[in-house]
Computed example of a mutant assay.
Amino acid sequence: MVSTQTPDIIRVTAPQTTIRCGVGESPIWVAKEGAWYWVDITAKTIWRLDGSSGAVSRWQTAEMIGCLAPHSDAGFIAGMESGIFHLHLKSDGNIQAKRLAAPIASDVGMRFNDGRCDRQGRFWSGTMLIDMSEPRAAGHLYRYSKEHGISAPIISNLFVQNGLAWSPDGRTMYLSDSHPNSQLIWTFDYDTDHGVPHNQRVFVDMKTMAGRPDGAAMDVDGCYWICANDAGLILRFTPEGKLDRQIIVPMKKPTMCCFGGDKLDTLMVASIAAGQAPEDPWAGATILLQPGVQGYAETAFAG
């Protein structure tokens, strides 16, 4: 699929904060706090931006953290190096961490990467090799729930699991693989009663497009927004897989986007500084922009 469409330019005059993340990821909006959170994987850091005051806070984690999702019992559920954790972020800067589960068998040198909850509140996240230069599809996608614990691998043979999202009605699941050897986005029919995806098919093959598919978000129209890493773009696909919009962002390596704000009409985009020119003020930046559409709220983990 090759598009001749002219990308939108939504001007962002400065990074939202002066924070420069090595590998910024997993932005989320917590409505009850009116705050944004995101992580820096390699720096083992969780960041918080107050949506009203602009105040920034940070917490240091004991190991690399790939993703966060709100937990209904307060705090967050997170995919980290050694498993899935329940995290409570304390006002003194400390973290209370409880490991909930870990894969029964996992290769050495793996970590959890992208993750979020389905519409019923089950947490999903996938594993990947920490050393991305090793071209081995050793990653798996897992489901975790309070009732059933962690599943056996649901999807296997993934290089760099990414792009998890669910349609507004929860009946379609999206998944991507960012590795240059893959660069695919898939859709699945999703059994909402049992949390089982089936009928896997290619949604978009991004090898024919600019950038690699990274993290994603969903809007109220059921359109799928995904960061095109290495291309400095955010792409919007209709439910039929048609590219209908592109937004230029000032960072070459955007990683994941998330809708938030009081009206869910603001998009936070995280990015990577690692490997980029040190003088580039946008590399590793986290930005906020308004794309003119409303996003679909993320579901908290059903704790």
Rank of each mutant, 00 (worst) to 15 (best):
Asn199Glu: 12
Asp131Ile: 07
Leu100Thr: 09
Glu279Gly: 10
Thr172Leu: 04
Arg245His: 09
Phe188Glu: 06
Gly260Pro: 05
Thr6His: 11
Leu289Asn: 03
Pro213Cys: 01
Ala285Ile: 10
Phe203Leu: 00
Gly241Ile: 01
His179Asn: 09
Ser91Tyr: 07
Leu267Gln: 05
Gln276Arg: 11
Gln60Val: 04
Arg119Val: 13
Ser53Asn: 13
Lys32Asn: 15
Glu298Arg: 04
Arg99Asn: 02
Gln16Asp: 11
Asn162Ala: 03
Thr18Ile: 03
Gln246Val: 00
Leu164Tyr: 12
Trp36Arg: 09
Ile155Arg: 06
Gly93Phe: 01
Ala283Asp: 02
Phe123Asp: 06
Gly261Ile: 13
Thr172Phe: 02
Arg245Ala: 13
Thr61Arg: 04
Pro153Trp: 02
Thr266Gly: 05
His86Tyr: 03
His148Tyr: 07
Ala31Lys: 13
Gly295Cys: 06
Pro281Ala: 03
Phe85Thr: 03
Gly295Glu: 03
His71Gln: 07
Ser26Met: 08
Ala101Gln: 13
Ala78Gly: 12
Trp186Leu: 02
Leu264Glu: 08
Pro103Ile: 02
Trp47Val: 05
Asp262Lys: 14
Gln96Asp: 14
Arg212Asn: 09
Lys90Pro: 01
Tyr224Phe: 01
Thr17Val: 07
Val12Pro: 09
His140Tyr: 07
Pro278Gly: 10
Leu267Glu: 06
Leu100Asp: 06
Ser57Asn: 15
Ala78Val: 10
Asn162Met: 03
Tyr174Asp: 11
Met256Tyr: 05
Asp265His: 01
Ile28Thr: 06
His179Ala: 14
Leu184Ile: 08
Asp177Asn: 05
Gln16Ala: 15
Pro278Asp: 15
Gly51Trp: 03
Leu184Tyr: 03
Asp189Pro: 11
Pro291Asp: 06
Gly222Pro: 14
Ile234Lys: 10
Lys146Glu: 14
Glu298Ser: 11
Ser176Met: 08
Ile84Pro: 03
Thr18Tyr: 04
Thr266Cys: 09
Ala69Asn: 05
Asp40Leu: 04
Ser178Ala: 11
Met218Asp: 14
Ala297Leu: 05
Pro278Ala: 13
Ile65Met: 01
Asp191Pro: 14
Phe203Lys: 10
Asp193Glu: 15
Gly93Lys: 10
Ala300Pro: 04
Gly275Asp: 10
Gln16Gly: 03
Trp36Val: 12
Lys263Arg: 15
Ala74Asp: 15
Trp36Pro: 08
Ala14Gly: 07
Leu267Ile: 12
Pro103Met: 01
Asp40Ser: 04
Phe159Leu: 14
Arg122Val: 05
Val249Lys: 04
Met256Pro: 00
Arg58Leu: 09
Arg122His: 11
Leu141Asn: 12
Ile272Tyr: 00
Ala78Asp: 09
Trp38Cys: 02
Ala138His: 11
His71Trp: 07
His140Asn: 15
Lys90Ala: 13
Met80Trp: 00
